[in-house]
Simulated scan of single mutants.
Amino acid sequence: MAPSAENKLTGLAAATFTPFSPNGEVNLVQIGPYVDYLKEKQGVNSIFVNGTTGECMSLTIAERKILAEEWCLKAKDKLDYVIVHVGCMSLKDAKELAAHAAQIGANAIAVMAPFFLKPSTAGALRSFLQEVASAAPTLPFYYYHIPVITGVNFPVRDLLVGIQELIPSFSGVKFTGMDLMDFGQCVDNCPPQWSLLYGVDEQLLAALAMGADGAVGSTYNYLGTHANKLIAAFKLGEVVQAREIQFKMQQLLSFAMKVGFNVGVNKQLMIELSGLSLGPPRLPVMPCCSEDAKLIVAKYQQIFTEC
């Protein structure tokens, strides 16, 4: 069932990396320490697993299941919220993953639009999401909007028209897009029990000003403490302080983007900052050389020394 306005998801959720062994196999052993690191070192109490950062489309259905199981198991009694991304190119695969997420105790599921044979209209996408949600009708359901990956870029506001009648468990949107007008229209027209979660980390403050309930992002794996300070400052009306933290985050990400800020670079940065053994990304994503990662770490240390 969809959450109420009192218990809806707010705050930060880390989009987790998938731990691999050096030879490219899923490494479940690292998930327990990863959960502890997020909670104890970053103050992050929610996670979004098997998403873009987790290289979901490079995983088999079996791998996604065992990962979801382990994340839910290790997060139990430690983290507040585990969202499992179940989007696939195949409707049947997505429904299978949705049903599995319900069986293993996930708190919610999310689905991005299929992007090989793309939905041509908002109505077509609504029908796809409805079918996936029907496989796990008791779980809160989120639409994962990420047009830079999917190429599906009609306004999310159009998608949301009438969606709760089709999907009673619909609970909100993970909005990983740059269009703050569309995001604002979603906030303005959504019921209070939905969660509007923003997914472009370098624009978090702007999204909060537009009414975001929280955020999901890869950098919150290692910038969680700073992002939490930003959110706290914003809530207190300390906009100048919040802006200073956002600018520092932008400085780091701008520097990283010059190196080529893809999943491989991002994952190596997480490894350097956390000390976790997360392994390389899976081909075709190329690993980041440790020298480049160390340059970004040095920039992080320079920027956040006084933050």
Rank of each mutant, 00 (worst) to 15 (best):
residue 286 M to I: 13
residue 191 P to E: 12
residue 295 L to C: 07
residue 22 P to M: 09
residue 188 D to L: 15
residue 150 T to C: 10
residue 36 D to I: 03
residue 194 W to N: 14
residue 94 A to I: 05
residue 37 Y to P: 09
residue 171 S to P: 08
residue 63 E to W: 06
residue 28 L to R: 01
residue 227 A to I: 10
residue 134 S to R: 09
residue 132 V to Y: 05
residue 192 P to H: 05
residue 305 T to C: 12
residue 117 L to A: 14
residue 246 Q to W: 05
residue 123 G to N: 13
residue 108 A to H: 05
residue 189 N to D: 14
residue 242 A to W: 01
residue 251 Q to M: 13
residue 104 I to F: 01
residue 204 L to R: 05
residue 52 T to S: 14
residue 40 E to D: 15
residue 108 A to Q: 04
residue 252 L to N: 06
residue 88 C to I: 03
residue 72 C to H: 05
residue 287 P to K: 07
residue 189 N to A: 14
residue 217 G to M: 08
residue 151 G to K: 07
residue 124 A to P: 05
residue 249 M to Y: 03
residue 166 L to Q: 14
residue 209 A to L: 13
residue 255 F to D: 13
residue 281 P to E: 13
residue 280 P to N: 10
residue 78 K to C: 06
residue 1 M to Q: 04
residue 111 V to G: 01
residue 79 L to E: 03
residue 132 V to H: 00
residue 303 I to W: 04
residue 141 F to P: 10
residue 112 M to F: 09
residue 165 E to N: 14
residue 150 T to F: 01
residue 249 M to S: 03
residue 174 K to Q: 00
residue 157 R to I: 12
residue 60 T to F: 02
residue 98 A to N: 10
residue 135 A to M: 08
residue 307 C to E: 12
residue 46 S to D: 08
residue 69 E to T: 14
residue 165 E to D: 15
residue 87 G to F: 04
residue 85 H to A: 03
residue 215 A to L: 08
residue 179 D to P: 09
residue 288 C to K: 02
residue 42 Q to A: 09
residue 1 M to G: 15
residue 223 L to P: 00
residue 234 F to G: 05
residue 212 A to D: 04
residue 254 S to I: 03
residue 141 F to T: 13
residue 187 V to G: 01
residue 206 A to L: 14
residue 303 I to K: 05
residue 264 G to S: 02
residue 152 V to R: 03
residue 8 K to R: 15
residue 84 V to I: 15
residue 60 T to P: 05
residue 12 L to G: 05
residue 286 M to F: 11
residue 304 F to I: 09
residue 77 D to E: 15
residue 237 G to A: 11
residue 57 M to D: 03
residue 124 A to C: 02
residue 150 T to I: 07
residue 169 S to T: 13
residue 173 V to G: 00
residue 226 H to N: 12
residue 176 T to L: 10
residue 162 G to F: 09
residue 56 C to K: 00
residue 39 K to W: 03
residue 137 P to Q: 11
residue 52 T to Q: 05
residue 200 V to A: 10
residue 42 Q to N: 08
residue 178 M to T: 14
residue 292 D to F: 06
residue 224 G to S: 11
residue 287 P to W: 06
residue 126 R to Y: 01
residue 132 V to S: 09
residue 155 P to M: 07
residue 113 A to H: 00
residue 66 I to D: 01
residue 285 V to Q: 07
residue 31 I to R: 07
residue 305 T to Q: 15
residue 14 A to E: 08
residue 146 I to G: 02
residue 303 I to G: 09
residue 301 Q to I: 01
residue 295 L to A: 14
residue 75 A to G: 10
residue 285 V to C: 10
residue 142 Y to L: 14
residue 289 C to L: 10
residue 149 I to W: 04
residue 286 M to E: 15
residue 72 C to I: 09
residue 34 Y to I: 07
residue 215 A to C: 09
residue 9 L to K: 15
residue 219 T to P: 00
residue 210 M to P: 01
residue 168 P to T: 05
residue 41 K to P: 02
residue 41 K to R: 15
residue 5 A to K: 14
residue 148 V to H: 07
residue 73 L to I: 01
residue 218 S to H: 04
